[in-house]
Amino acid sequence: MRKQFLPALIAAAVFALALAPVVPVRAAEEAEPPASDWPHKGPFGTFDRAALQRGFQVYREVCAACHSLRFVAFRNLTEIGFTTGQVKAIADNWDYAVATLDAEGEPTERQPLPSDQLVPPFPNAAAARAANGGANPPDLSLIVKARGGGEDYIKALLTGYADPPEGVELGDGLSYNRYFPGHQIAMPPPLGEDAVEYADGTPATTEQMADDVVSFLAWAAEPTLEARKRMGFKVVSFLVVLTTLLFFVMRRVWADQH
């Protein structure tokens, strides 16, 4: 049976290599986003809750003016370390209200409850475009999973604004970004030194805020990440043990055939 392993190995290696092109091909013109060490990456990675809370603060104070986060509910914020009381306060102080109907059936508004999804800044895409010069700021709930470069790309984008090089003409209302496909992005640089004052006193450098908000958005895109990796460890370990036992059972059963 050993003779079959070599071609099997070759086939497996070829299959693995063949998978490489499945990763979306990024155009060569944009710069490659520098890689960072994200604490939640890797088979044993976990989220840094302090970073997630700081990141939420950045989202709320900077990004939420234009970007919705509609798949996250206020109550989900307890998963990043807020107490139910703090979550209630966040909901009570949220800048945007939930559209509802009053007793006469007329449209009215109410302050969100913890069970509500995070209320978006604009009620619909048309309103968002009208307020943002024709561009629709995308919802950020899945942005980290929706971009080929993932966390590294989002962080690079946030910190990658620069003056346009020689000869490049910027369109109306657009800014030059080293990492955005086409280099001209409708979003003005969102982060500047001390754009927020962190509740825990961490200095709010642009890089720090970018790190924190990207960590937060990574959590928002995949809140079950830690549970998944924990379960993965248990499942894979169990399967390795069981498969090893099955291997010995198989050898025992086949003993009389060799």
Partner: peptide, 19 residues
Amino acid sequence: RRDFLYLATGALGAAGAAA
């Protein structure tokens, strides 16, 4: 010894299936 191997594997498999 063989029975123990079969028993252990079977039990582990059953536990895994339940989980």
